[in-house]
């Protein structure tokens, strides 16, 4: 009965926007939060797996949802929900990478210091090319974290530069330059393998 009731309520929420669901969660609507988790569990797991490595993905997702619920009242419902949630996932992933000491993470990066021109349309045109798709699938896991994350967010999660800038808290120009450098690195890796 309870499950059936829950299922009915969840299906009724399918057309409700993320922001509206978040607003309901702020009023402690647990079903609304369940719907949000259902919407994002696959995407967040994919993001965590690609960015932080497969082993910790479920832990990262769990921590992300716990922190999202705890801090939901800090979310501004006038803004898009997904960058806010991914920001939490980003922090969790960074914590896991740091704790695991698998890869070095720079505390400070010169990329954020100087202005870079953001040419979003150029990268977007490349996204659909066969070469880029092939490169991404084969070598994205071999990129350093600072290049891997924008690649995952842009090509796999399909976020805009602005959203990636909000998730990683870096300037849009830095997102563009990291994507460009990441692609150059991927091409070099491909050339080395051939």
């Amino acid at each position: 009965m309870k499950a059936e009731d829950g299922a009915v309520r969840t299906s009724a929420m399918e057309d409700v926007s993320d922001a509206e669901l978040a607003r309901r969660v702020q009023h402690e609507d647990v079903e609304a939060f369940e719907e949000l988790m259902n919407r994002y569990k696959e995407r967040l797991t994919r993001y965590a797996r690609r960015f932080a490595g497969g082993l910790d993905a479920d832990d990262i997702v769990q921590e992300t949802f716990v922190k999202a619920y705890r801090n939901i009242r800090s979310f501004n419902t006038a803004r898009p929900f997904s960058p806010w949630l991914y920001r939490i996932a980003h922090n969790e992933a960074i914590n896991f990478i740091r704790r695991a000491k698998r890869e070095p993470l720079a505390v400070f990066d010169l990329d954020v210091v100087f202005p870079h021109a953001a040419g979003e349309e150029d990268v977007a045109a490349d996204a659909s090319s066969r070469e880029t798709g092939e490169l991404l699938k084969r070598f994205v896991g071999e990129l350093p974290p600072k290049y891997r994350e924008p690649i995952v967010l842009y090509y796999f999660e399909e976020f805009s530069y602005e959203a990636i800038s909000d998730i990683m808290r870096i300037p849009k120009g830095t997102v563009a330059i990291r994507l460009k450098r990441a692609k150059d690195l991927l091409r070099t890796k491909l050339r080395d393998r051939l």
């Binding site: 647990v30 569990k41 479920d58």
Partner: peptide, 15 residues
Amino acid sequence: MKKNNILERIVTTIR
């Protein structure tokens, strides 16, 4: 399956 467990666990904890 594990993911559903995660969600169930979180919902149970909230409730």
